[in-house]
Amino acid sequence: MGNYFSFERFIYVFPKIISNVSVNFHIVFWSMLLGTILAVFVAVLRLKRIPVIGQILGVYISFMRGTPLLVQMMIAFYGIPIVFGSLFMNAFGINLNRIEPVIFVEIAIILNEGAFLGEIFRGAITSVPYIQTEAGYSIGMTGAQTFTRIVLPQAFKVAIPHYGVDLVGVFQNTSLVFTLGVVDILGKAKTLGAATGHTLEGYVAATVIYITFSLLLKGAFILIEKKLAD
């Protein structure tokens, strides 16, 4: 094994690779932030059962949940410039073929999260028993008051564990972005491997980094849950 895996090389590549974890977290941060906002709209609109919009959202969610993220990223990467290319060129003078691939990755994940988190939020809201709403009305609250003061806080508690699992999932999904040339942890491992001719150390480093951060994120959410339970 000595020929293939050297601990010295591992020590050499590890800091170079872990420094690129910021790229992964950049993607996680923006995708979760904008994805959460999108998801709130999706959940509320779905709950209102508006004709046509409800059906469109149903198809959107089904597509996002039924197709692989890698395919979605590729469609975003190749499709957005084709569909919106001339619009952006004429209106803003932006050539969509020139912008960084990470933007398309983020768009794909945001749309994906809009669907997944949207369903989580919807489930959490419907899980609050209707008697809670009735109780709100009974003391003279308005519909909006009841929703924001009674239903949402309870739904929030239900959603938090699922939100945590989803966030760890998004972090793990960033392992796909190197296929579009984004230099994240895996992308860095790949380029270092190509440069030195030794790939194994880099990928082992990426494995260690992914597992460590996934467990840390998971642990953080368990702590948050515990805090909220008190």
Binding site: Y4, Q172, N173, S175, L176, L186, T199, L200, Y203, V204, A206, T207, Y210, I211, T212, F213, S214, L215, K218
Partner: peptide, 23 residues
């Protein structure tokens, strides 16, 4: 199970493939 759930499928796949190719 706890540790392995922290490993993305893509990373595992590439790692195993590489190990397979190497050894």
């Amino acid at each position: 199970v706890t540790v392995y759930m922290g490993l993305p499928t893509m990373v595992a796949l590439i790692l195993y493939n590489l190990i397979f190719m190497t050894f």
